[in-house]
Structure formats: C-alpha cells, structure tokens
Design a protein around this nucleic acid. Structure first.
Lengths: 234, 234
DNA sequence: TACGTTCCTGACCGCCCGGTCATCAGGGGC
DNA sequence: GCCCCTGATGACCGGGCGGTCAGGAACGTA
C-alpha cells in the first residue's frame, strides 16, 4: 500500500490519493456506523470525515450496504479467525481455552471500535434482512460454532458434566455480547459504568463453576474473587 | 373506559372515539416501534394502523418522544412493579425467588410484544439521550436493583458464596436481556431459533450452580437437565 | 508547456418524514 | 330539527438523505 502524499498540500484544492482512500473511508464509516447506527449514518458525513466528497465515496463503494459489509469483513471476521486458529492448536483444558478465547475476544473486539458493530446489527437486523443474513453467516454462526466446539469437547472429555450444549453455549456467549452492547449504549450514561475486567472475571467464574460443578474455592483456575470491595460502588 | 361505537359505521367518514383513541394509538405504536425501531417508525404508519390520521395522533400525544415514553410507562414499568412486590413478599430461598422472577419476567415481557422495547433502547440510546435517560431511570435501574437485592441477600444469608455482587447481578441478567434481543433480531432468520424454555432452564442451572458452588447433580432445586436430547437440533 | 487520463467535486433529483393548521363534519344538547 | 362544540382530517412545510453525473482539477507524460 503506497501513500503518495500523507498530508494534502493546502495550496491545491484536492489531491489524488487513490490507494489511501478505501482505508480512510472504511475508518470513517466504522466510526460513524458505531456512533449512530446504520440507518442514521449519513454518507455525506462519512465522506466528510474521510476528507472527501460524497461522490468520491461512490467511486470506491457501490452503495451504503457494500460499504458496511466491507467494514465488517475488515474488522470482525479477522478477530474470529484468530480464535478459530487458537481452538485448532490448543492442547490444555477446555476451561483454559475458554478463558483465552474470552480474553482474546475482549482485546480484539471489546476494546476497539469494531465492538460497536454487534449492537448495530441487533438493532437493524429486522429492517435490513440482507445485512442480517450476511452478518449471521460471517460472524454469528462462526463465533457460535467456535465456542460450541469448546463446550462440547469439554463435555465429551468429562471436564464438564453432561448438559444441553446448544443452550449452554449461548449462555456462555450472552454476557459477552451484553457487555459489548452495554458499552455502546448505556455505559456511562447515568454514572453506571461496567468495569470490563472485573465483569469478565466474574463471568468466567460463574460459568466455569456452573459448567464443572466445582464445590467452591479453587482460586487458581476459577478465580471467584472474594469481591474486591474497592470496585463496588453504589 | 367507555367505548361508544366498537366498529365504526361504514357510512360515516369517521367517528368520535375520544376515550378509545389513546389505547389504540399506544397499541399501534408499540407494534411498530418493536417492529422497526424508534427512528424508523413513521407516525403516519402508527396513525394509519390505529385507524386515524396523523393529525389525530397529535391531538393525544405531544410528540413522537412522548408517545414512546407512554408506551414504556404502560408496558414495561408494570412488569417490573410486579416483581418488586414479589421480592417484598417472598419467604423461601433466594434461588427459588430468582427462578420465580425469571419465569414471571419471561411471561410478562419475553412472551409479549413489549419485549421488543429493550432491543430498541439499546439501539437508539446513543442517538436519543433523553429517551436513554428516561429508560435507565424507569426500567434498567429498577430491574437491576431488584435482582441485585436478591443476589446480595442470598449471599448475606450464606445461600450463595461471597462474591462480587455488582457484576454477578449483571451476569444473571445478561442472558435474559440477550434472549429478548435475539428474539427480536436474528431469531428464526437463518433457521436458528432459540427455545426460550430450555434456554432459561439451562441459564438457571448454570448461574445457580455457579452462585452456590454445588458439586453437581441435585436435580430437585437446580435442574441441570441432563440435556433432553430431543430439544437439540442442528 | 501542453495534453490526455484519472481522480474528485458539488449541485441536483426524487423521495421521505416529523410536525402544523385551516377546514370540515359528527353528534350531544336543546 | 338545529346549533355549536370539538374530534378528526389531510394538504402542506421545512429539512434531510441515498444516489447520480456533468464538469473540472491534478498529475504523469512528452
């Protein structure tokens, strides 16, 4: 990828930057999609944030929908692929693997801009069935399968007791998705802000003890964290 | 509430039905808000579905925002109040209470039209801060406090081990919210449909075992459900 | 310096939506 | 049977947005 002129010279009205445009447009689009949602995002604004006019946007992307798909392909899909590789290569216990996946996912998705996309998809799925289908294929099904395999394998190995893996997988994923949604909607709105680290630690503790049926305190593997009282405020 | 003429006579262009209009408009609004979201719902459509013109809608509601608030006040708030009373009156274990609350909530909210509102609120919170604030006050905070009290009480009584109640409460609630969101977004989109009953049963099993740290199979209290294989299909 | 290609612009089109208001007609009261 | 209040209408306004396109500016080439 070559960038001809990183900072456009001010004396000319505009500069040719064919190579840089797509990435810049995608970045601007991600920002605005996450901030406002799909329908509420105006292509005029996306273009302006990328420093071009709306007409230019249409030189690089066929339509609003294609722009959005490109954002997903570049942002969420790679994060999933990383964990797919992790599952293939992992050797230790399934509990460890689960923890690793959760932490990876938080690093890649939760802690970055792209984490706002799931909220958006839940919101617009019914209004834009084509987008919903695309997202379900590329993100939901793959992510679900990923975690489902871990749960199922853990059960078959005897690490987890027998259970309804179908729904257990969803129970494992639900709080992760919820955290994403919360962060991009109500978080910090009314003084209530979730601390992701603590939240994920508690989640992991609960599902592991639930999945394994451990008696109680084995702080090494499943850090049930006797409630750092410092984080509790209300 | 008196209804003068239940079915408008066809020979007149319209009928006066001052008493019936608000409820009919609210019902129509709920339908459409849930179906399409807040911003995407057109007041023209709401009016038409209620059998009146847009002008009439403005006779009864000041604005789109006030219409929406009225929908929430009439639909979600009562469901919460019911459980607030339940918590006050309950005598048995906290695990039992938790189960009751979850089942109540599913009956009142999950299984009805109003269950689509949370998705909508997550979606539009950032774009409509006033609505978000209202919703957080009237629904989120109250619901959170409700469940939080149960968790905390269970812990103080020794029924649940010591833990970070703040986040544990959210982990309990997250799968419930997730189920609502799923039902009103992707559910049934790609053949993947969640069975609410089974899902909630598994959820309850996981959080109770997690919360209590039970060894494994005590099917009476915490029905861990050795996976009815019938419900598993994929 | 002059030219042709490539990249970019911004005005424009058609359509949509929240909210308003002059006007009309239903129907209770007499 | 008539009147008048009031519930109800629907055309209209201002603003906004996805998508198009004719024209113009930048830049490699010679």
């Amino acid at each position: 990828m070559t960038i001809t002129v990183p900072v456009p010279r001010p004396e000319t009205r505009w500069t040719r930057r064919k190579d840089a445009r797509p990435a810049e447009l995608l970045a601007a689009a991600l920002d605005l999609f996450v901030e406002r949602g799909y329908a509420a995002t105006r292509l005029d604004d996306v273009a302006r944030r990328a420093g071009v006019s709306k007409g230019t946007l249409y030189l690089y992307f066929e339509s609003k929908e294609e722009l959005f798909k490109a954002v997903i392909r570049g942002g969420l899909v790679p994060a999933i692929q990383r964990n797919e590789r992790l599952v293939q290569d992992h050797a230790g216990t399934m509990a460890d693997l689960l923890e690793k996946i959760i932490r990876n996912w938080w690093q890649d998705v939760g802690n970055s801009q792209i984490g706002g996309i799931p909220k958006l998809m839940f919101a617009e799925a019914r209004n834009f069935p084509d987008l919903a289908h695309f997202y379900q294929q590329e993100v939901i099904n793959r992510g679900y399968k990923l975690v489902g395999e871990v749960v199922e394998l853990g059960q078959r190995r005897g690490e987890f007791p027998p259970m309804d893996t179908e729904h257990a997988t969803r129970i494992v994923l639900a709080p992760l998705v919820f955290l994403l949604l919360w962060r991009h909607s109500f978080d910090g709105c009314d003084g209530t802000r979730i601390d992701p680290e603590a939240y994920l630690r508690v989640h992991l503790g609960i599902i592991l003890d639930g999945l394994r049926g451990r008696p109680s305190n084995e702080p090494a593997k499943a850090p049930r964290t006797a409630a750092d009282p410092a984080t509790s405020r209300r």
